[in-house]
Each structure stands twice: as C-alpha cells, then as structure tokens.
Design a protein around this nucleic acid. Structure first.
Lengths: 247, 247
DNA sequence: TTTCAAATCCAACAAAAGTTCCAGACAAGC
DNA sequence: GCTTGTCTGGAACTTTTGTTGGATTTGAAA
C-alpha cells in the first residue's frame, strides 16, 4: 500500500499553516489501515482522536436499540472526522466503520492539545471547522423536524446529483437500504418515496441508474413537502389541473 | 433597570481569564435591552454577534413555511447564544426572541475576532464550548431520528424536573404548546402523550402541576420507546403480566 | 447458459403522528 | 358575581411512516 500523504492543504484547518507547523502535525499523526467493513471506533468509547482520511470510504453512524441505523456521513479523502472528541477529549459521539478498505492518519487527543497550544493558527482553524460542523448539524436537525421523507429524498438527490444542465445523474451507487439509513428511515419507505418522485416526473430511471429530470420540482418538494404539478410540457393556459382553490 | 453585570466567570468560556482580559472583553460588549416578545434577531440575517444574557428569558427557534415552530432552547442568565455566527461571521442560524423583558451583552463578530486574536485562552475556551454545543445537537438529532414523542416527552421530564427523591415536580411552567415546540410536534400530540404517561403511572397531576412519580419508568420509556409494565406495587412472582414471549 | 444472492417492486396492514373540532377548566379582569 | 381569553381534555379522522411478506428484476458468479 502506498503511504503517500494526501494534500494536507486540502484539509480546511491545515490550510494556511507554515511548513514547520505542518511538519509537526504530520509527525504527530499515525497512519492506520482498516479492512473493508472494519470497525474504526465505537460510540461511547474513549476518545479515539482526530482522523484524516488517506484513502477509502468511511461511514459515521448512530444506531438505536432496535438496530436501526442513522448514517451521519459517508466520507472520502480528504475528509476528516471526530473533531469533537479530539478537541474535548470526551467519548466518541458516533460509530465509525470502513466501508471499503481504508487508511487514515490519526492524531491522539493529547497530541492535538500540544499542537493547539503551540500553533494558534491551528486552534483558530479548528474553531472555524467546529462552527461549520455546527451549522451542518443544525440543518440536519431541521430536516428531521420539518421535512417528510419524500422531501428529504428530494434534497438528497439535489445534493448528490452531479449537475449537468437539466438532466442530472445521481453519481454514487447508493442502494435504497443505504439511502434509508442516511434519511433516518427504512428501505421500504425509501422505495415508496422513490416511486412517488418517479411518477411525479421529477426523476427518471434507466436500468438501475436514476436521473434527475426536474431540478426545480425537487427543490419545490424539498422546501414545501408538497408536489407541484409539473408545468413542463403542458400548455400554461386553460389547464388548471384541478388545482383551483375554492377559498 | 440595573446594569450590574452577571458573574462573567459563570460563562464557561470566560472562566479562567485574567482580570485584564476580562476587562477588554467587557469593554467590547454592549448592553442591549428587549421588551417581552421582542425580536432579538432573525435566522438568515447578517451575523448579530455573540450574546451573553444578563436577565430575562430568551427563546431560540426555527420555523418552517407552514409556521410550525421548533424551540431549540429557552435560555436564562448566564447562558450565551449565537456562538456559531459570532465565530464564523456567517448568517444567524436561528431566530431569537425575548420571552420576558430581557437584557443581554452583545459582542460583535469583528470585536470577537480581535479578542480571539489577542486572548488565546478565550480562543481555546470557545473551541471547547463549540465542541460541547456540537455534542448537544448530535443528541437532539438522535432524539428526532429514533425517539417517539412519548419518549421525547419522558426525556424532557427527566431533564426538566428538579430531582427530589422519588417524587419530583416539573419546575418550569411550560404550557403544552411550548412543550410541543420543544419536542418538534403539535399541542394535541403532546396532550395525548401526557395522558399516556399519566395513566401509565409515570406522572401524576395535581391541579395544573405535574409530578414525576416513576423516574426509572420514564428513563425506560426514553430509552426503548416502549412502556414497561410498572412492577411497583406488584408481587414480582407469579404475575408475568402477559409479558411471556412465545419464541 | 444456469444459478444464486442481492436489490427492488408492490400490496396490505399496523402504528405513529398530524389535524380538526368542540367542550370544559381555570385565571385575570370588569 | 360575570366575562373573556388561555389552557387543557378528548374524540374522530387523515396522513405519514413503519412493518411484513411475497413476487420480480438484476448482476455476477459458477
């Protein structure tokens, strides 16, 4: 396996550090390897440190007593994770597993404390990173509070799809099971929601691949939790589509 | 109104600062007053700065298009809020209103940047505060993902109640409407959940006040989303309570 | 090709949550 | 006392989500 480092400047909070600082950080990091499916750490276990993904894919998730999963993130290089525990030294706040074979640099809590004490830029950068993380979680919280599952699914497609004019393909090969874990629901419900988006004309399917047809329609659904009758190929006059409101 | 400062050491990230540093921070802070019901700032508006509550009660909330509210926090002195926007200078991530007449010290983003640049202890403390905030949101996310509403209500009672041996009273005078906003649901649903907890013997009511009767039962419900048949005054032998599992 | 396992589709049902509506209870003020 | 507005209790109903089970498709391996 190659131990070539990723571009450490691609990590938001390592950017802008001088060469000496970056060297000290790299010296504090240890490269760990994980087989596909291997557990990296578990929720509640003592702080595993800060992780910088070198290669492979990592899943962060939480699980409830009945075994249902909530996938918080699917991460690739140069993503990092477990900043919260690495900073405060508390227990890991979620589980982490290697989806594919993976490698990651790990900086222990104590080592990070030393680095932060000597490198004020790193400290400031980490603060910005945590603020950003916080906004991210706040948005997820809003999704879970206010959005229906078709709406969350629409949002996922909008985010995941590689935009290419009007017609977009969903890039990642996510199974419905995996999508369900991301949305915090079950496979069957995702299947239903998918069918709804398909025969509402927002998505189109070819074989197993799914394409985004109506980006604006997905956005409308994500915002309002309701379908907007697609005015795509319809004559805008005289149709009305039983949408007339009596009141 | 009295402008006596709260004990600034009670604010987690002002603790441990020397006198000079604390003076510079206080110099950067401006006291603002708000009438009951007044808007402090709105979600999406440009960064309003860092707030340190002096007196009164403040509500942080989000709202969706249909006008449903999600109360993120109800805060009293010496709580602080809007750290995220104050640190990264971005838009406010939620709405803030004064529940009662209130006053708060405000430190603008630019002023906070200066302070953080000169006071490394403040920087380090803010980092810890954001890490803590992050854990808090992660737990809320889990609540919304995995817990039923009776379960969330049970958790709320466990947290809000002032523990006093076995029987505990819920201290804050929350209406069902306010509880609903905290749990992210509607008043009627809270009412139903409340009735369920009452006739399951977990809570008791006297007039309008609600008392916690079975703390362990509430915890069980919060953990498992299911009621545990109360083995309180029952003989532990020979009852079985139709709990026998055929498989 | 055949075969198999995984992924999907689909219907029917159960449970949870949201909605609508109205009747009482209670407290504050007249 | 009475009135008014807020809060609560509770039924009936709809929608959404979760669950179960079987049929079908798909892709890769044998």
């Amino acid at each position: 396996m190659n131990d070539l480092a990723i571009d450490w400047n691609a990590v938001p909070y390592f950017a802008g550090l001088n060469a000496a600082a970056r060297r000290r950080i790299m010296d504090a990091a240890r490269l760990h390897h994980y087989q596909a499916g291997a557990v990296i750490f578990n929720e509640g276990d003592p702080c595993a440190g800060l992780f910088i993904i070198q290669n492979g894919m990592v899943r962060l998730y939480r699980a409830n007593a009945e075994g249902r999963l909530h996938t918080l993130s699917l991460l690739r290089p140069p993503s990092t994770f477990n900043e919260v525990a690495a900073v405060d030294g508390g227990a890991n706040p979620f589980n982490a597993t290697a989806v594919t074979a993976a490698a990651a640099y790990v900086i222990a809590h104590s080592a990070l404390l030393n680095l932060m004490a000597s490198e004020r830029t790193l400290l400031a950068n980490l603060l910005q990173a945590l603020a950003h993380l916080n906004r991210d979680y706040l948005e997820r919280l809003e999704d879970m509070t206010f959005r229906t599952i078709p709406s969350r699914l629409a949002k996922l497609f909008l985010r995941e799809a590689a935009y290419d004019g009007q017609i977009c393909e969903i890039p990642s090969q996510l199974t419905q099971e995996e999508i369900a874990a991301i949305l915090g629901t079950t496979r069957e419900v995702v299947g239903r929601a998918m069918r709804m988006l398909l025969n509402a004309g927002l998505l189109r399917k070819q074989g197993r691949a799914v394409y985004v047809v109506d980006q604006a329609g997905l956005a409308y659904l994500a915002e309002t939790n309701t379908l907007r009758n697609p005015p795509l190929n319809r004559c805008p006059l005289s149709v009305e589509d039983s949408q007339s409101e009596p009141g």
